[in-house]
């Protein structure tokens, strides 16, 4: 029970945070919906742990908890990849900017 409580509390915290970020227009609607549906699923599973077992059985995994761990790993790996690509892109943009400044400054 204790663990469920913590999980729900954290998920609610995450939902409110995302909502706040969305209101400030720091995240897109697309991400807001995706992110919140993830946390709402977490809340759902925490309240009715049996539901995860049913879904797990349906996709061919023995236990609901296992399915949750598998999904978490996949989602995290994907997010890291996205961040990595974005980071690389940012690096290249910084270089372009630095180059433009360097060339413009010397022309003065």
């Amino acid at each position: 029970m204790m663990f469920q409580g913590i999980l729900i509390a954290f998920a609610l915290f995450a939902v409110t945070r995302t909502l706040k970020q969305y209101r400030k227009q720091k995240v897109s609607l697309h991400w807001f919906l995706l992110w919140n549906s993830l946390w709402i699923t977490v809340i759902g599973v925490a309240l009715w742990p049996r539901s995860a077992d049913i879904i797990a059985k349906f996709v061919g995994v023995e236990r609901g908890a296992d399915l949750a761990v598998y999904l978490a790993v996949v989602i995290l790996a994907y997010l890291v990849f996205r961040l990595f690509v974005r980071q690389e892109q940012t690096e290249k943009e910084i270089t372009k900017l630095v180059r433009k400044i360097a060339i413009e400054e010397v022309e003065k």
Binding site: V98, R99, I103, E105, V106
Partner: peptide
């Protein structure tokens, strides 16, 4: 002399020099 306001590495510096040499 061209100056990078942030350190970008040798490859980046070479490319900056190249673009300047070609265009200007």
């Amino acid at each position: 002399v061209l100056r990078h306001v942030i350190n970008r590495g040798q490859g980046a510096a070479l490319q900056t020099a190249t673009e300047y040499a070609l265009t200007v």
